[in-house]
Every structure is written in C-alpha cells, then in structure tokens.
Design a protein around this nucleic acid. Structure first.
Lengths: 237, 237
DNA sequence: TAAAAAAGAGAGAACGTTCTCTCTCATTTA
DNA sequence: TAAATGAGAGAGAACGTTCTCTCTTTTTTA
C-alpha cells in the first residue's frame, strides 16, 4: 500500500489580523468574485436536484459533485459541510413560502385575500423551477425540510423563524379585518391561522395540481374553507 | 493494518426445496413459533422507536439491534434487510390510519360522522403508543413514510393501496349521504374527499394536540370545514 | 511595465468512519 | 442428537471530508 504518512509542511504563518488589502472593486466585482457567486449557485441547484431525487440523507456529496460537474475538493471550497448546504436550501425554501404572504394585498375582502394567497402558494409549490425535475419537486423538498426539522435543531430554528413570520403576517391581517367587521367576532384568530396554515400544508403535501386538479377548481374550495374558518356562524356578513 | 482480504467462504449450499418436516402443530404453536412472533414484535417496536428518533435513513441497523437488545446475526434471522423492516412499519402505519375509517358509523348526520373520524384520526396520531417517545411520534413516522414513498416504489405502492381504500370508503359514505339528500347536490364528491383528506393530513402534520390545542377545540373546526366542503351553498339542509 | 510572489480554484486520490449484511461458532431447545 | 437460535467479529462498500498537487488569476515588487 502506498505510504501517505509523509509529514505535512507546517502552514505558512499568517497573522490572525491579516487584512484583505486588495482593491475593493476587485474584491466585489472582480472575475473571481463573480465566478464565486456563480459556483455557489451551481452547487445549490445541483444539490436541490439531488435532494429532490433522493432526499437529504439519500443524496451523497459525490452525487452532488457529479450533478454540479465539480470535484469534492472544489465543492468544499464553497460549503464547509453537507449540513451547511442542507441548511441553506431549507432556509431558501421556507423563505420563499413566507414571502408569498407579502403579496397579500390589503383589501376589503379578507376572504378573497386568503383565497388568492392559498392559490398563489399552491401555484408556487407545484411550479417546477428547475424544469427537468418531477412535478412535485417543491412538495418533496417541503417534506424533506419538515422531516429534517424534527431532528436537526438548526433546520428546526429556520422553520420556526419563517413560520412565526407567516403566522404574524396572517394574524395582523386578520386582526385588522376583524376590527373592520369582516370577520365573525366569535372567531379565535390564532386557531383560524393555525387551521388555514394546516390546510395549506395538507394541500401542498398532496400536490393537487400534479394529480390533475387544476388551480381553478381549487379556488371555490379555498373560498369555502376560508369562509368556514373566518365566518363560522353566518356565511355572509 | 490487519489484512481483511481473506477470501470469503462460499455460502453453504442449501437446497431450495428443503422442507420443514416438523409436526405442523409444533410448527405453528410450539414454543419456538410463539417466541418467533415475540422476537419479530420486539424488533419492530425497537425499529419504530429508532426511526422516530432518527428517521429511516438516520437510524442504523446497529441502533435497532441495541434498542432491541439483539445481535445483528439474530436480527437478520427475522428480517432479510433494513428495507423489509421499513416496509413492514410503513404498511402497519398506513393500515392503522385506514382502519379508523371503518369505525365511521353509518349515521343520518354525515357531517358529524366526518367530524368524529377526523377527531379520532388526530387522537390516534397524537397518541403515544410506546409511551416513552416524543409527543409527535406518529406524526414523525407519518412524515417519514410519505417521504420514503416518493423514492421507494414498494412503500409508494403501500401508501397508494391504503389511500385508495380510504378514498373509496369515504366516497361510498358520501355517495350514500348525497342520495339521502344530506350533501349539497352541487358538490364534486371526489374533490370533497381529496380536500378533507388533505386537511386531515395537514392537521396531523402540524400535530395540534402536541402544540397545546385540545381535541375539543378542534371539533367545531372540523365541523365548520366539513360543512363548508359538503354544503357550500347553504349551511343548513 | 515585466517579473516574481501570493492567493485562489480545482482535481482526484485517499482518509477514517460508518454502513448493511454475512460469516463462523457456541448455546439452547425439541 | 439434530435443528434452531444467537452472539459477535468482520467483510466490503459507501459515506463525508481532507489531503496534496497543479493550474490560473491577482497583487506586489523591481
């Protein structure tokens, strides 16, 4: 067997307070800086494809390297570990979901606003960003993220953060609508938010569009459910 | 370093058509046969605990052996592979879910029947069978099974089988109720079943009871949602 | 501005660990 | 005594990661 025990060269002594003395233009916009961003993007999109195909645990770093057309040595210059990639992708996925709520227009019709957000969320989740993956790519990733969150504290914190944000956004909108008399005063808003979120997640998980249910068919369903949750006593206000 | 390259012994030739010549009474009810069932059960419950803790991929066969207080050699007498254990547990989990629908009493009030089944399902899912695991044990396992189904054909078939059964049971009940005039004639029953199933799964996933929402609080929610789905036009019939 | 030095990027073999599963051999049961 | 059962070492493959080395780009020096 080949002997690899040759003593390592001591690392060149570099003072801890060494500063990057390069021109800041080069640092930010130089060929290397731009290439670095592109490479990070390449790795993330390759990893996403692999994770959708095989899951966080099922996809190996070698798989990701092959998909990205890159050697392990190269990949590890951009991410310190597999976990770091998983966390990055998890955060990105949850953030995208949370951002959909930002487009929830402040309208006089809270029911229609909820319907619109629900449809938008389902549309986004059944959209195939990559183009060559399975139809339920986003839903698969969503499941991976949630499963990972049950045993990885960092991912759990990421999920909590974004879910908390979503909860507060919805709650704020509902509180305003309630004060405007658009929501039945009896309704427990916290429970309403939780219920609607659970429903949304259930529909994401099932991925209706991938099973042939068109978005238009989902619209009256969302409307009926939103009405039931927000105006349980009397349908019309 | 120790040399492990010693050539393996060829497997002992065992004729494929070897027969069990024991008395069939002994074979079925003898001490050994009974013990065998007990051992299988021991392995399954140990594996379930490990899978809930670490996921299907995250839990190793050694973990399961330790949990079961058993050597690998012993364990592999009862299950040919890790996958076989995963499939067994997946099937068991999905079957238990499907069986809850069997207790759906044929009643004059279809809404209350749906509410009862929903509550029962959530109760079962938030129940901790083992006793010493996390509160969301069933929900975690559910997520594992669904995630596994996206990339393991056998588990996917298991899920399809039981979901198909659930779908048909609900559809039959709804069809009868529709004919009895208990459901709005406008309702697309297929979509109603899918919607209610998705809602149920979303609520399972969120595990409301583990988050402090009591089952009683969930009852009016289920009632409102069931009503919205089955009687969208007019609340009372 | 040209040459020298440093830093960055990448390839790919190899590392140590862990994985699933199988082997041999000892013990228990019928 | 023959068959069933179990223990536990360990084989071999796969894992995530790190290694050394080469080539390119950027910065510093003359």
């Amino acid at each position: 067997m080949v002997d690899h025990t040759m003593p390592r060269q001591p690392a060149v002594v570099s003072s801890d307070d060494a500063e990057d003395t390069r021109c800041f233009v080069t640092r930010l916009f130089g060929k290397r800086a731009l290439n670095r961003e592109a490479q990070v993007e390449r790795i993330l999109s390759a990893a996403t494809a692999c994770f959708i195909r095989a899951g966080f645990r099922g996809a190996s770093m070698n798989d990701i390297c092959s998909e990205a057309g890159m050697s392990p040595g190269a990949l590890y210059r951009y991410f310190p570990s597999k976990e770091a990639i998983i966390e990055h992708i998890s955060a990105q996925h949850r953030r995208e979901s949370a951002e959909i709520l930002d487009r929830m227009a402040s309208t006089n019709d809270i029911i229609e606003a909820v319907v619109k957000v629900g449809i938008e969320h389902v549309r986004h989740m059944s959209m195939n960003t990559a183009g060559d993956g399975p139809a339920d790519a986003h839903a698969r990733l969503f499941m991976e993220v949630r499963a990972e969150a049950t045993r990885n504290d960092t991912v759990a914190a990421i999920c909590d953060l974004h879910e908390g944000m979503m909860r507060e956004k919805l709650l704020a909108a509902f509180t305003a609508a309630k004060q405007a008399g658009l929501i039945d005063p009896v309704v427990d808003l916290e429970l309403a938010v939780a219920t609607l979120a659970a429903m949304g997640e259930g529909i994401i998980l099932r991925n209706f569009p991938a099973q042939g249910v068109p978005l238009e068919a989902l619209e009256p369903v969302f409307r009926a459910l939103a009405t039931a949750v927000l105006r349980p006593a009397n349908k019309q206000i």
